[in-house]
Simulated assay, not measured.
Amino acid sequence: MQVAEQLIPELAAKAGRNAYRTTLKQTGAVTVKASNGQMVERKRDGSFTVIKSLAVDKRVKPGTVLKRIS
């Protein structure tokens, strides 16, 4: 049982990545993600657009809804 419990973090991470990929493939939607100090919009075809650079000490509370300013 302890061996199985040790696998939970790895399985959860893998499930999250698979859900992300599946969502992009099925809906054709874009996702917004923080990557290397930048907020990027990723598209279904794998391309991405940098929306803005983030401050190093910028913290966002989980569940915060962000809106893009056009």
Rank of each mutant, 00 (worst) to 15 (best):
G63R: 08
M1N: 06
S47R: 06
A4T: 02
P9W: 03
V65Q: 10
V30I: 02
D57A: 15
R68I: 14
K14S: 08
V40T: 10
G37I: 10
G63M: 07
G28W: 01
Q6K: 13
V50W: 04
Y20M: 01
V32L: 08
K52D: 09
T49E: 10
A12Y: 08
A13D: 13
V50E: 06
S70H: 11
R68G: 12
G28K: 02
S47A: 09
K33W: 00
K52M: 13
R44P: 03
V56A: 15
E41M: 15
R68F: 11
V40N: 12
E41F: 04
G63N: 09
I51F: 03
K58H: 09
K25I: 06
D45C: 00
V3L: 11
N18E: 14
G63W: 09
V3D: 05
V60F: 13
A13P: 06
P9A: 05
S53C: 03
A12K: 14
K61D: 12
A4W: 05
N36Q: 13
R17S: 01
S53L: 05
G46S: 01
T22G: 00
G16V: 08
G16S: 11
D57E: 14
A13N: 11
T31M: 15
G16A: 15
A13Y: 10
M1G: 07
T64P: 01
S35H: 13
Q26M: 02
R21H: 09
T64A: 05
G63E: 11
